[in-house]
Design a protein around this nucleic acid. Structure first.
Lengths: 338, 338
DNA sequence: TTCGGGAGCTATACCGGTTTATCAATCCCT
DNA sequence: AGGGATTGATAAACCGGTATAGCTCCCGAA
C-alpha cells in the first residue's frame, strides 16, 4: 500500500481515526497503552502526515517564506545570503518547517508575493531582509496580518519583531581602531542610503569623528556595486590630502577599492589602510588579505527563524533581539599611516 | 469578509460550488455567460485558491523542491547558485509554481529530504545539482517516483531527464585557445573527481593534449576550495619546467591561484596565463582581470524549470536538453608565453 | 443507591477545493 | 412525434487530516 493514511492505521489498530490523530499528536484522549500501539503501527507503516491535509484542517502550513528583492546579478557574490539562508534553515528544521525562497527584482514584486502567499495560505510567516528607511513592506505586512520578522533593522515603535546586530557599535570599533593606529583622515565608502543599516553606519562615523580628533571623515554613498566602489575610491585617492584609511560597507567594494589602489600605485597597507564591513572568503583571497568586520551570519539567520516561530505561535509577541556583536578580524590591509 | 471561498462565490452568483470550480479552472460544464459572471464575481471578491485545499483534492501542490548538499561555507562565494536559482524561479513563476529551497550538509540528508517531501506531498518534483559519478540519488528518486530533472549531468540510459551544457566542448575551446597562443605546458587544476563534470573536463584535456602537441597537460584534482587551489598552484609553479598556463575549474580557485602567482613573483600574464572555468564578478574584480569561460547560468536554471514542469505534467517524458554553449571571455590574464 | 464526573473512545462535522454521478432541458435525427 | 445524444447545471462524495459533541464505562463521594 502506498502512502498510508491515518484511516489505514486506524483500521489496523482497530480504533477510530480520531484516536489515531490524538495519539500521533500527543494530545490527551487515548490511554498510554493505546497510544503506544498506534505509534508502533504508524512507525511500521512508515506513515507521514499529508502536509496539505494538515494545513487544511488546522490552519498552519508549516512553511515560512523569504523574499529577496535584488537583481540576481548583485546577489550571490556575497556569501551573506547563503550563510543567512542556511542559518534560517537550521532554525526551522528543528521544528521541521520548510522554507520558500524567492528572488525578485524589486520591492513591488516582493509585496505582491506577500499578498499572494497570504491569500493562498502558502506560508505561516515571512522573514524580511534589507530594511529601508520608511520601508513600505512593514505597513503592508501589518495589513495582511502576516507574522514577520525583520533581519537587520532594529524595530522602533509600531514596528515588526526583529533580529539585529549593532551596526553602530561595529562601525565605532572600526573607526576607533583606525584612529588608534594613528589615522586622522578616514573615508567611508558607504552603501545606498535607503538602507537603514547604511544610515546607522554613516551616523556612527559622523558622531565619532570629532571625539577621535579626525581631520576629515566623509561618508560617500554608492549603490553597493563594485563599479561605484571603484569609482569612489579613485576619486578619494586623487584628492590632494587623500585619506590614509578607507572603510568599505561591503567586501565586494573593498576588493574593488584595493584594485584601484594597486592600479594607482598606492600601496596597501603602506600608504592606505583598508577595512571591509563584512567578511567573506573574498577578503581572505586578496593580497594583502583584508581586515574585515565579521558577523556570525549563520547564527543571525538561526535566531531570525527562532523569533519568527515564536511570533507565529503567538502573533502578539514583540521581540527585538540583538545578536552577538560583530568582531573585527585584523589582517594585512591595515597599518599605521606612513 | 476575509478570504472568500468558492462557496461564497457560488452563493453570490446563485450557482453551485461545482459550477464555480468549473468556471475558475476553464473546464467545460458551464455556459460562457455563467463562466464570465462567475469570473467577474471572483475577481471582485479578490478570490485566491487555498493552496492546501487544492493540493488535497487534486494531487499536485504547485511547488517544486531543490536541495543543495554543500557545506554552507563553500556556498555563496560562487554566484553560480544565485543565478541558477533566479533562473529556476523565472521558469517556474510563469506557471506560478513555488520553489522550496534547502541547504543541507551531505547527500544522505538530501535523500532523506526527498523521502520526506514525497511522503508529505510537499513538492511535485525536484531539481538535482552537482551530479556525481554513480550518483545514489538517481535510484532513490526513481524508487520514490518523484519527478526530477538533473542539472549539469548528461543523462545516459536509465537516467533522469536533464539539462546540461557541453563541458567537454568548453574545455576544448579553452585548451585550443591556449595552444593557439603558443602554450605547450598547460596545467589543469580540477575539482573533485566525484563530480561528473569534473571527469568530463579532465578527459577533454587528456584527449586534446596529443592533438595540440602539448608537452604536458596534467589535471590535478582538488576539493574546489581556495586553499587547495592555492596549494596546487604553489606546487605547479615550484616545478622545474612549470606550466606557462593554468586552467582552473572554478573562479574561486583561479583567484586563489592568481594570488599565489603574485606571491611567488610569477607575473600574470607575462610568465603565466590563467583561465577560470566559470565566470563571475570575482574574475572581473581582479588585477589582471581573469579570462574566463562564461555560461548563461540564469538560462540554465530557467530551462531546468521548464523541463521539470513538462516531466511533472507527463512523468514518462525523457528530455535531455543541451543548453547554449559556454563562451570564452578573454580578459587580461592570458597572453602568449614568454 | 444514586449521582457526578472524568477517562477513553467513537462518530461526525469540517477545512476548501475537485470530481463524479445524476438530472432536467434542449436539440437533432429519422 | 418519439427516442437518443448533448448541454448546463446540481448534489454529493472525496482528499487526509483536525476538532468536537457525545457516548459508555467505571470510580468515588454523598
Amino acid at each position: 500500500m502506498a502512502r498510508p493514511t491515518i484511516a489505514d492505521i486506524a483500521l489496523r489498530a482497530g480504533v477510530s481515526k480520531g484516536a489515531v490523530s490524538f495519539a500521533l499528536n500527543g494530545r490527551p484522549g487515548v490511554s498510554e497503552a493505546t497510544r503506544e500501539r498506534i505509534l508502533r503501527i504508524a512507525e511500521q507503516m512508515a506513515w507521514r502526515p499529508h502536509s496539505a491535509a494538515r494545513a487544511l484542517g488546522a490552519s498552519r502550513v508549516d512553511s515560512v517564506g523569504m523574499v529577496i528583492a535584488r537583481p540576481a546579478r548583485t546577489l550571490g557574490v556575497e556569501p551573506f545570503f547563503a550563510h543567512l539562508l542556511s542559518g534560517v534553515q537550521s532554525g526551522l528544521s528543528a521544528e521541521s518547517i520548510s522554507l520558500q525562497l524567492l528572488i525578485v527584482e524589486d520591492t513591488e514584486a516582493e509585496i505582491e508575493m506577500y499578498k499572494r502567499w497570504t491569500s493562498e495560505h502558502r506560508v505561516d510567516g515571512v522573514i524580511l531582509v534589507d530594511l529601508t528607511v520608511r520601508d513600505p513592506r512593514i505597513d503592508e505586512l501589518k495589513a495582511l496580518e502576516l507574522p514577520a520578522v525583520v533581519i537587520g533593522g532594529r524595530g522602533g515603535k509600531g514596528q515588526l519583531p526583529s533580529v539585529w546586530a549593532d551596526d553602530r557599535d561595529a562601525m565605532l570599533t572600526i573607526v576607533e581602531y583606525l584612529a588608534a593606529l594613528g589615522h586622522r583622515r578616514i573615508a567611508h565608502v558607504a552603501g545606498t542610503p535607503i538602507f537603514q543599516h547604511t544610515q546607522r553606519r554613516i551616523r556612527a562615523v559622523r558622531d565619532a569623528a570629532p571625539r577621535l580628533g579626525l581631520l576629515d571623515a566623509p561618508s560617500l554613498t554608492t549603490d553597493f556595486s563594485d563599479a561605484e566602489g571603484a569609482a569612489t575610491t579613485r576619486r578619494l585617492l586623487a584628492q590632494a590630502d587623500r585619506p590614509t584609511a578607507i572603510v568599505y560597507d561591503s567586501d565586494v567594494m573593498a576588493v574593488a577599492g584595493l584594485g584601484v589602489a594597486m592600479e594607482m600605485g598606492v600601496s596597501v597597507p603602506g600608504d592606505l589602510s583598508i577595512v571591509a564591513f563584512d567578511d567573506s572568503i573574498l577578503t581572505q583571497l586578496m593580497h594583502p588579505a583584508l581586515t574585515a568586520m565579521s558577523r556570525d551570519t549563520f547564527d543571525f539567520g538561526r535566531q531570525a527563524a527562532e523569533v519568527l516561530l515564536s511570533v507565529i505561535a503567538n502573533p502578539a509577541t514583540m521581540i527585538n533581539r540583538r545578536t552577538a556583536d560583530p568582531v573585527l578580524t585584523v589582517r594585512e590591509s591595515t597599518a599605521p599611516p606612513a
